[in-house]
Amino acid sequence: MKKSVIYIFLSLIVIIILIIVIGDFRSTRPDRMSGNPYKLNLDRIKSVDPNLVTYQETKNYRINARQAGGIAVAGEKIYLAADTFLQVFDYAGRQILKITLPEPAGCLEVSKQGDIIVGHRNAVALYSAAGEMKWRSEPLDERAVITALALKDGTIFAADAGNRAVHLYTAEGKYVDSFEGKTSIEGNHGFIVPSPYFDLGVNPDGELWVVNPGKLALENYTDEGNLRSYLENISPEIDGFSGCCNPAHIAIMADGSFLTSEKGVVRIKIYEPSGELSTVVALPDKFMEDGEAPDVAVDEEGIVYALDYDRNMIRIFEPK
């Protein structure tokens, strides 16, 4: 073999080696790597006609807590449960009350008299407007995870996601009864709660509405736990619910409309009492991707208060 041929061959190989090493070294940089070929395509869900959105974000309240629990709004005051405290402040952000709770609270509700009912993991407690504890219910069993509260006259409804049941308490904190929504009718399995998202509310007509997250439905129950009617629209489109356990949180507006907040594709929407989508409050672009569904509350004027767990703030949305 001729020497010059060998040399040319060798130099070619050296060049190939250099190209591969340098090329590879440069290739793994963020701006030179390709996107995810196996991306879960949610564009169809996320792209929504922006004209449907009739709310805009106007205010944020920064929360000074590590783990927010829940919010409620009543009488021009915002009630916040977070870490192991309960805080009340006015719309200007001035604190009115702050009390330490014995354990974290995940939800709370305010009565017309201004009493604050707080839901702990397995118990319910009532505090006066001045922050004094009036009573605390007997603890429920180990499985209990209370995720939501609602009030109707003298009854307190507590949604227990762990036991897949709604518990009833008197205004004095005495346990009365529970129901699991089960009936003898075929296929009616009661509440299907795959994860700790289980909300309920009482509308102005005194009807109890419970989310059945596994069925992606809003169900109307009598106080005895009999299913009266339900609203359901399983769809990834804007007018329906999809994924598991949605809507994650609800609040009922002064006119009986439902304010809903979803996880997965995080969004807040308002439904007519008849179950038709009336308007959209906030689209997923407002929230962190794969964020937690915000707890929602609404005041008499229809202003929406959303507790953003990921950004640690209460976000206010007002009609445009």
Binding site: I96, L97, P102
Partner: peptide, 28 residues
């Protein structure tokens, strides 16, 4: 750093814990 740029039109309010606040020690 994270998330979409803060919207100028959104008012950010810090909750003030004024000294005259009623500080209850409710449970313990």
């Amino acid at each position: 750093g994270a998330g979409p740029a803060a919207d100028e039109s959104i008012e950010v309010i810090a909750i003030t814990e004024s000294p005259d606040t009623v500080q209850g020690e409710a449970y313990t």
